[in-house]
Simulated assay, not measured.
Amino acid sequence: MIASGERAENLEIAISCYTQALQEGTRARFPIYWAMTQNNLGAAYDQRIRGERAENLEIAISCYRQALQEGTRDRFPIDWAMTQNNLGAAYDQRIRGERAENLEIAISCYTQALQEGTRDRFPIDWATTQNNLGNAYSDRIRGSVPRI
């Protein structure tokens, strides 16, 4: 399959490739490879142009959550932090569910990501996550002062 260069088509090809990779790179045989591929598949669905946006985000969230089952903080702290950041971003954009709850989950994910993705170790990743966290707090519904 040769990509045409069109973004939407390239994302569809990426989704197909990741899905095929998961047929051999199973969780049982290659757990960290499986987790990495789940994270990549989640990112492709997060960016997907085709299909319903709400459904694409739900699939992305599912992929990120699955990745975190094997890519744990103890075993792979940096990958874990990256996936937490990705999961936070998906919840921040989530269409389904209650907006206030989605933002609280996003804030929690970003905060967890900062536990491993520290300023000293990964300054640009830290800055990106801090920016994401700031945006989530800026949009936060719970615990905020009512606007007049």
Rank of each mutant, 00 (worst) to 15 (best):
N10S: 15
R50Q: 15
Y137H: 14
Q23W: 12
N40L: 07
Q66D: 01
A14G: 11
I95F: 06
I105N: 03
A8Y: 08
A100Y: 07
Q130K: 11
I32S: 11
E104C: 09
A21Y: 02
A14K: 09
W34T: 04
I2Y: 14
C63E: 00
A14H: 12
Q69K: 10
D120E: 12
T72Q: 01
T118Q: 00
N40W: 06
S138D: 10
R48F: 10
T19G: 05
R53S: 11
S138L: 12
N86G: 13
E58N: 03
D139L: 12
A3V: 12
I13T: 13
W80Y: 12
Y91E: 02
D125K: 11
I124F: 11
A44Q: 01
A44Y: 05
L114E: 05
Y18H: 09
N85F: 08
G5V: 04
M82P: 09
C17W: 07
G51L: 10
D120P: 01
N102M: 05
Q47D: 03
E12H: 09
F122D: 05
C63S: 08
N135V: 15
P77H: 07
Q69W: 04
T129K: 04
P123N: 06
A3D: 13
D120K: 09
N86E: 11
P77L: 10
V145S: 15
A28H: 10
